[in-house]
Design a protein around this nucleic acid. Structure first.
Length: 230
DNA sequence: ACCCATGTTCAGCT
DNA sequence: TAGCTGAACATGGG
């Protein structure tokens, strides 16, 4: 789950703000009050009257509101009023505070600082663009889908060195695409708008899309070797 | 039916 | 010590 999806999660939880947890599979949550939620990058931060919890969905995590999965044990279940919210296969960690979060690196935050990102990127001329895009200390919330789509939009090869990348345009394209991802996801049309991710043919030249593990992060990149130059 | 993938952390090694 | 690798976790979709 990537940053924009987490923002959507906070929105879906909004109707439950200020309400009491009447039941849970975790004793400490019972009787507590759900105050509000927020997201930072791929973190979903839930504030309850008894504590702050950070949920990370990793690769396979999911949540369901009033739609429990059959035969699946949620990592966290909370019942609020007549509603049931379930979090599956995620990592849950209690936080003592959220003061360590820097929202100026969260690509979905209004506080995101493009100038700060540009500065960090310029400090890494030897790094591959596929790695810096996924760096959560620069672009918190960007995952492999956003990475691949942004690289295609920029016509950039995943292995391009940052020294050869138009840094300012990379930042603006990434932030803009995160918003686009959010809009498409909300409209349930995200996948059909992928241009290169898991595609067989390049939408520009019709050539076969290359699928290769790239960068220090060793994540799969989907790219057109003809249209996306070094 | 099998294979893959929207991700991160950590142990253990060089 | 820094940096790398593999393992572990866990699951729906093509």
């Amino acid at each position: 789950m990537e940053g924009p999806s987490l923002v959507i999660a906070t929105e879906e939880l909004r109707p439950f703000e200020g309400k009491k947890v009447v039941a849970s599979n975790r004793e400490d949550f019972v009787g507590s009050r759900f105050l509000h939620s927020e997201s930072w990058g791929k973190h979903l931060i839930l504030h309850f009257s008894h504590g702050i919890y950070r949920i990370h969905f990793l690769m396979f995590g999911s949540y369901r509101i009033d739609d429990p999965r059959e035969n699946r044990v949620p990592k966290l279940l909370i019942r609020i009023g007549k509603s049931e919210i379930n979090f599956y296969s995620c990592a849950i960690k209690e936080l003592s505070s959220t003061s360590d979060y820097d929202w100026t690196v969260d690509t979905m935050s209004a506080e995101f600082s493009s100038s700060k990102a540009v500065r960090k990127l310029k400090a890494r001329p030897e790094a591959m663009v596929c790695d810096v895009l996924m760096d959560q200390e620069i672009f918190a919330g960007v995952g492999n889908i956003i990475k691949n789509e942004v690289l295609f939009l920029m016509r950039l090869h995943p292995k391009a060195k940052m020294a050869d990348v138009p840094v300012s345009r990379l930042v603006s394209t990434t932030v803009k695409y995160c918003r686009q991802f959010y809009d498409w996801k909300k409209a349930y049309v995200l996948k059909r708008n992928w241009k290169i991710m898991r595609k067989k043919k390049c939408p520009v030249c019709g050539g076969r899309v290359t699928k290769a593990v790239t960068g220090k992060l060793k994540r799969v990149s989907h790219y057109c070797s003809r249209c996306q130059e070094y």
